[in-house]
Design a protein around this nucleic acid. Structure first.
Lengths: 335, 335
DNA sequence: CCTAAGTTCGTAAACGTTTACGATTCTATT
DNA sequence: AATAGAATCGTAAACGTTTACGAACTTAGG
């Protein structure tokens, strides 16, 4: 593999000049610039990133820790992150935690060791440890898709308001017995999102003068099967719901199947609304009414902030709330 | 950020000794090893990857070029790749080509420049250019999920046989008018997969003495909408099909919706079989009968081969065909 | 106590860049 | 022609490691 020195020798210049050429620095005549470039091309020269990183103290790499890359919600965020990193000339090291806490921390160690310039995080539960790990090393981090109380920039949506809007829509359609399938709420796996959405649900009901019935509330795990089972529980309870709000599209699809398997029809017998607006949600039958999250943008904006942080630019707003939107398809019917 | 030298000074040893400690080399007493480790811990020392990479000539990073990370088929392969890379202490730089040829080549340049140790490729159309780019630099590459005629290791399935099996299953159920939704076949976007699967379909028909009817064959684009439209074309044609084989689950779901929208029922009126066995395929109604590809394993094995190649180990088999499997669910009915 | 072998450690060069600083060459002005 | 200033270039140090080689020290056997 040819080095800067090989080129210098063949071009009859010093390595400094060659370096200047490749960094588009001034102080080199057009003639020599051409000559150097020509020789470099012939040799198939590529500057060595490790050497550059070493002397600059920057690697041009950002770490990306994500719970599960095969989850369409995450992969869409990842798309946004990857895309703006590319245009800003950064590369991303993919760290798939596989929904395991140990792997997450394993990766944190690896990333510190790799001397990444920054880290984009999307862990379900952002803790003191996460914060400390990088704060001590002055490695900037930003959270994509999740809020936090720590002094860490994040970009997310207003989950409370989003759930509130969804349930309100159902109420406006005349529904009074509205089931809820929320996310994990027990200890380790609890997410702020789940809590916020649950509260949004309750707020909407109570504002409308509807009473909150615990039999209509069940816990899912953000998987289709979990949604299916939660919906089953709700459907089996005494009070027959006329609508179910699942806090993720995947769970909503599970719920959809559950109502079918109960011999009911959607939306005629029970309306269903989801959350996220993943691609999937419009190819179900009926297509899902859902709360759209701007996944791609969440990733994109998070990456933008991180890179600004890396470059020492002051970031005016550290907590960004992006707009959600209710997209109405055919899984809901007025009563 | 503390360096090896800081530690050496505080521990009253030379930098060579510190280096030996962190590489678990012999020739250092237990006492000094402890002392060095202790001081390193206090300082929060992390060895510098760039410096290491520079002197070793290896970065411990592999590039991963993939057409679309948000496609569940790819993301499952990515999971496999990422997982075995992690256990083998490699990191992966994610390159999402976004289904664009330019971005693919942009990334090829970037990866060469990054001095990655190897590259895992999954491009729809592997060409001379792809091959040349890395061959010239002695950077090993392997193809995950796609075969090629070039001298490049790959791991894939036998697409011909898989399609053959799927259609044969339909035939064994008594179907005679079987529609096919294949992938893109025109020039740039053509994939060997699509061709092989199309041929498997035809072979199965002709072996069973059934005639091939062009009206029953339509082209999709591996998207749900494409599957929907292709199925529409097939359904509208003169000969009424009793079954449709779509060459990807996503397209099969589109087809499923099309038969519903034609006022037909699946599987009563028309059976549908898909291809891939992505998670989605079992949460449709009815759950899809499909050809299962071992996506995770394809990625995992590909990574394994690449890493062996990087380490100069001779790879016995360079062309690996993994087993597919027909998974029977409820979207097919005997006639 | 002497020597040989083994154990533990340090010195210095190397990896491929970037960059501050100074040196040389060129151009233009007098 | 002499000189100032600009344009162009080279020298060398630095970045943080790894590692070959050899030096110093320890231990054991006689």
């Amino acid at each position: 593999m040819p080095t800067i020195e090989d080129i210098a020798r063949l071009a009859n210049v010093s390595i400094a000049t060659v370096s200047r050429v490749f960094n588009n620095k001034p102080d080199v005549s057009e003639k020599t610039r051409e000559r150097v470039l020509q020789i470099a091309r012939e040799l198939g020269y590529e500057p060595s990133m490790p050497a550059r990183s070493l002397i600059k103290g920057k690697t041009g790499i950002v770490g990306l820790i994500v719970p599960d890359i095969s989850n369409p919600y995450y992969s869409e965020i990842v798309r946004g992150i990857e895309d703006t990193c590319r245009t800003r000339r950064y590369n991303v090291i993919l760290c798939n935690a596989d929904n395991k806490r140990e792997k997450e921390f394993e990766y944190i160690d690896i990333l510190k060791n790799r001397w990444v310039d920054g880290v984009i995080f999307h862990c379900d539960y952002f803790s003191e440890e996460h914060y400390e790990a990088f704060a001590r090393k002055n490695i900037p981090i930003v959270l994509a898709g999740r809020a936090t109380a720590y002094d860490v920039p994040y970009v997310a949506i207003d989950n409370f308001k989003a759930a509130f809007d969804a349930v309100n829509y159902l109420i406006s359609l005349g529904h009074e017995r509205i089931g809820l399938i929320h996310g994990p709420l027990d200890g380790m796996k609890e997410t702020i999102d789940s809590v916020d959405r649950l509260m949004g649900y309750k707020k909407a009901l109570s504002e409308a003068g509807l009473k909150i019935c615990e039999d209509l509330i069940a816990e899912g795990d953000f998987k289709a099967k979990g949604g299916y089972e939660a919906a089953g529980k709700i459907l089996k309870a005494g009070v027959k719901p006329t609508a179910i709000f699942a806090v993720s599209d995947i769970m909503a699809i599970g719920a959809l199947n559950a109502v079918l398997d109960f011999g009911l029809k959607c939306p005629e017998d029970v309306s269903v609304v989801g959350f996220d607006n993943i691609d999937l949600s419009e190819i179900t039958r009926p297509p899902l009414t859902t709360i759209a999250q701007p996944m791609y943008n969440i990733g994109s904006v998070a990456a933008e902030i991180l890179i600004n942080l890396i470059n020492g630019e002051s970031v005016e707003r550290k907590r960004i709330i992006l707009d959600h939107k209710l997209v109405i398809r055919s899984s809901c019917k007025s009563i």
